[in-house]
Design a protein around this nucleic acid. Structure first.
Lengths: 197, 197, 197, 197
DNA sequence: GATGAATGAGCATTCATTCAT
DNA sequence: GATGAATGAATGCTCATTCAT
């Protein structure tokens, strides 16, 4: 993404400001319904100046998305040598953040389609990188004989993340039936049952 | 949703026509990027006449969503008395449809947020109704001692459906790694492992 | 040029209205400095409705240009069998109109460059058609031995027209030195001297 | 035109730089479509600094126009005592430059209208000065009895220049029909025929 | 019931100019 | 003298909705 300004530090700072302001509005009203004027106002910049750091509204979406995806990815921790315990911890940590930051998670699911192709890859990569942490735990568990040898670490990792995101994108349905703590417990059980030998 | 016309049959027919035309456009270009003019054209009606059967663009979204959700819900079948077999069949059927109609599934996930609150419930109900079929199978399995007693049929059903939808909303990621058939096999294994005793 | 509306008569009428309003503004302030809002106002239409008959501002320029070019082209008359007399009459008529409608002539010269390539040809053709009338007179004169055999009717016609347009695009310079009548007399002499044997 | 800076030599130098950079861009994209930012970039100056030597974009147009007009005016030469030969040489030289620098000629015709009134006179004067050289040749020819006594040197000079510029502003039409050399020959014949006794 | 012309507020984006550094 | 970040009004264009026919 090219900027008009050449002062790298300023560019970084202003883009931070834009991502921050935009993400709040996008969560509130969605990408399409949010106008550049509103975004400029939210990040306390003039419209014209904003365009010094961003070339289009799509650029703003990318900045916001990048921002949101990082917020949604918790440190999964690594206090345990036992793969099952490590997996529990990873799920607990990541699901906890998904709960706390469910607005961000939701935003990513809802607006990813508006991201132009040239940016999609970079967002997907962040996702893949995060999933890889789960894949590692699973692979180690398989190696150590703790997890079933026939599971596919890639797909199971995707399953795990999706089962956590579900709390965000089905919250209307789920929160009527159980609290997050109960949700977490049951998902842990569901996941562990399916990977354990 | 109120209509100007009072001929119920005509109203139903015209709304069918609208839902059908709109859903195709929404899938192609998204809700916000599709104009009422285009919708009218797609369903071979004049703009003015369309407004006799619909009060706003949001009404069109509801019609399209209702249409799409029904398309995405396969008959889960009921050829088996054995709960494990019944579950396998249900998953196979529903996932198969989700694959075939992934555009519809995707549409529902992506545009649900644009649905005004007053319609959300009616769409959620369709979802809940469908999930109930899985809940029944699971409940029977628990009763018969085939499935673990500590699973929550409601949540597990949501999990199952979500793990199927995943094929649609993560297709960029998943289709690079495996075919639908492989995906189905592994998800079946994942699900059965987690519910079986 | 495609229109949203299909009623051909209405389209024609509205485009007339647009060309008429636009040409006045373009003459006054130039194409680039005139906004679509101002044009809409000038032709007593809403901006949105104007776009039913025109797809872009460039379309408006084409309509205005076509309008202007027709206004700038006088009937050259054909009362004389003698080529020299016919030429005199043609020049007198066309220069008279160029004088009366000098604003239109000027407009064409100044804004032609803004016309997108796809329209330029159609405007050039109008020009060529008009020039052809002079070419015919010249050709006949050559044939009858009244005009020099070595003149190039195409180029000379272009010269004649340009020498008339000059009154429009050099008016600041010329009108300080002579009246239109004197201008016409001298140009007639200049032209006739150069084509006569 | 007032400058912020008082160092006259620097002012002159910077304005030269601006005229040079601007004229290229104006030729390429037109006055209105060229931004001050682009101009500043083209003449390797900061926007802010440019405004030390120029008070507005219109000032830049004036500088560019002045520059362009000088480029378009060839030395008409004076190797001949015979007025007819002198005229031929003058036309040949000036038309040759108009051909070589047709972009500059075109630019003058197309953008003159954007020049604010206060500058127009100074540009017209340059034009008048150049035309005067032709007037002198014509006057001498009349005096020597080589040219017709009833021609108006002022108007004929304007005609001559215009007939040369025509090659620039009607190039689409003309270059399809003949080369510059043929054009020059025929215009020479046209002009000489009309002024010779 | 059906039509589609008309409305006008709203959108993303650009750009001449200023001014603190 | 020189810089370029900042301003905000203005631009071309779109579109949900209305309503006279």
């Amino acid at each position: 993404m090219r900027a008009t300004s050449k002062d790298k530090k300023l560019v970084e700072e202003r883009r931070q400001q834009i991502a921050d302001g935009a993400v709040r509005l996008f969560i509130e009203s969605g990408y399409e319904r949010t106008s550049m004027r509103e975004i400029a106002e939210a990040c306390e910049m003039s419209v014209g100046n904003m365009y010094n750091y961003v070339k289009s509204k799509e650029d703003v979406l990318f900045l916001a998305m990048d921002h949101a995806i990082r917020i949604g990815q918790a440190d999964i921790g690594n206090d345990h040598r036992d793969p099952a315990e490590a997996l529990k911890q990873a799920v607990t940590n990541s699901f906890g953040t998904m709960d706390k930051e469910q607005n961000y998670v939701l935003f990513i699911y809802q607006e990813a389609k508006n991201l132009p192709a040239r940016y999609r890859k970079r967002i997907l990569d962040l996702d893949r990188e995060y999933a890889a942490k789960f894949e590692d735990i699973l692979a180690e568990g398989i190696e150590k004989g703790v997890f079933r040898a026939d599971i596919n670490p890639f797909l199971v990792s995707q399953n795990i993340l999706t089962l956590g995101h579900m709390w965000a994108f089905r919250r209307w349905l789920l929160s009527g039936e159980c609290t997050f703590d109960k949700f977490l417990d049951q998902q842990l059980a569901f996941i562990l049952a399916s990977v354990s030998r």
